[in-house]
Design a protein around this nucleic acid. Sequence first.
DNA 1: AGCTTTATCCAAAACGTTTCGGATTTGATG
DNA 2: CATCAAATCCGAAACGTTTTGGATAAAGCT
Lengths: 339, 339
Amino acid sequence: MTTIKDIAKAAGVSVTTVSRALNGYYDVNEKTRQKIQAIAEKLSYRPNAVARSLVTKKTRTIGVILSEINREGAKDSLAFETLCGINDRATELDYDILLFSTSSKKQKSKSYADLCKERNVDGAILSGLRLHDPYLEEVVHDTDFPCVLIDIPLESREVGHVTTDNVKGAAAAVGHLIGLGHRRIAMINGHDEAAVSRDRLEGYRRALEGAGIPFDPQLVYNGGFREEGGFEAMYEIGYNRKDVTAVFSASDLMVLGALRALERMGRKAPEQMSIVGYDDIAIAAHCSPPLTTIRQDRYEMGYQSAQLLIDMLEQREVGRKIVLHSELVVRKSTAPCKE
Amino acid sequence: MTTIKDIAKAAGVSVTTVSRALNGYYDVNEKTRQKIQAIAEKLSYRPNAVARSLVTKKTRTIGVILSEINREGAKDSLAFETLCGINDRATELDYDILLFSTSSKKQKSKSYADLCKERNVDGAILSGLRLHDPYLEEVVHDTDFPCVLIDIPLESREVGHVTTDNVKGAAAAVGHLIGLGHRRIAMINGHDEAAVSRDRLEGYRRALEGAGIPFDPQLVYNGGFREEGGFEAMYEIGYNRKDVTAVFSASDLMVLGALRALERMGRKAPEQMSIVGYDDIAIAAHCSPPLTTIRQDRYEMGYQSAQLLIDMLEQREVGRKIVLHSELVVRKSTAPCKE
DNA sequence: AGCTTTATCCAAAACGTTTCGGATTTGATG
DNA sequence: CATCAAATCCGAAACGTTTTGGATAAAGCT
């Protein structure tokens, strides 16, 4: 490994000059700069990022903490799409990404903040956290550590967030069902620990009330965002609430489970049950029936997260909150109400 | 940020002693160790990994270079599953992951080796590279940089690889079709720059010849592993080779395209055309018809890659090559030949 | 007592860079 | 000719660790 010293020796100048030449300072003669650059090139010199970070206190690295990185996460590739967006924008802006998972045992002993401090990342992007995650508090209190949260509405000088308009999205979904004539519409929600669940519930409620349909808490089930949860919820609906003709689910994954439940009960969507999902995961367009759903652009969310974080890191004055739009995609899992 | 010096001062010992106490050396009195640990705890001390790396020359970080991290990559989540496996094993073994994409512009100017050198990762895992990728040569020649390749059969002291038994897998796929009575079987392959394509072609050929069916190179199409490529290939087959009753595709993604082409031509699978794919992506089980395919465990591949790389990094004597098994999954896209 | 061993500690160097605070030279200016 | 400014360079400190090569004191042995 050639170091800055080797170059200094070869060029007959001091390390200071080499450093300043290579970093484009103006107090070095153009000729010596070229000489130094030529030598650096010839020795295929690469600055040691570790050494540099030690003195500058910057690593040009952002930590990405995704709770969904595990064997099951592959089915809905939401986390992956987010990661792709983060990665693309980060690389464009010449930042690197240090990936942390929270699934392993390590999480228990080390907090995010510790991880980040230890590895000296400049900032972090967190996704998939539960609302009452103990580490979330850490983030909020530890105000000097810049980070952006995905789908968690918190803001301060050093924390921003990006999310989608979940209330509107859910309202559009339910509005679509109402437009088809459905009046008894159940909801399969995620869980209370997700901000998006609260918002989507709110959207569901507003759409109903806007149409003069009373909101009935009994019609709201929790599926925990898991396929199995969707299965169980639909099973219950099918047996206990035979008046229900349509379901709004807070995730496509749960719809997959719900469809299996319907099949098990000898019923079909959309003939005996209209369903609209959320997310527009890859499977949604291909499964049977293809899902009517609310599309949210996770790639864009990741992209914007990276942009926001780096804006913050580089002291640009910028809004701490980004809300992206979602969009109703009508496919074949919904049909006019027959009753 | 509390440093080792702060602790030394607080404990009334030298920094050497603090370092040795915290790192479990045996030449420090148990009482002083406890005292030091208590103080470290109280000051919530976290060792600065950057400073440590500078002297130890180790970062406990592995670079992960995936070519498939981009907006399109989300549909088949193969890269993501691999990443999950890598991540899980790496975290278990207390390594961190630095993510590099190759999609962006940066790639053109900086090679992988440069990236890795610059960021001082201890080793790297590369996936999605083409056989004649200019950087691959770099890897092979730069023999002092440890890395493991996914699906590229290269070996040396510092490079290992993990892959699946593609020849067997392809042979099983084609054997399944032959068992159903098919004799005119086309293949939609990926591209020549992928080792897996060569192997799968070999498996296709062997299965045919094993059944006494002559191998006809005209029946092999290249779809580039892209959905559109599958579409086009199937279109050609449908119009120019009406004798073909079955197709073996080197990826499920291309099958999705092929199915669209069939539909466009007013034909259906498996009635008018049996198709078996490869990969068993998430969509495969849900699309219509559900795909008969060869399952390969990408998560496991990632997991094993991480294990292999870290074994190499820690100087454990271990085989440089890992071959995982694949498995035929029979669903509904294949049916007995009617002719 | 003198010697060796053992246990415990530490000063200083090293890692590769950036940066602070000048130093030196050159040319222009009054 | 003395002074000043600009251009160009450099020595040394600093970043926070680990590690080398002892130093010191206490204990054990002959």
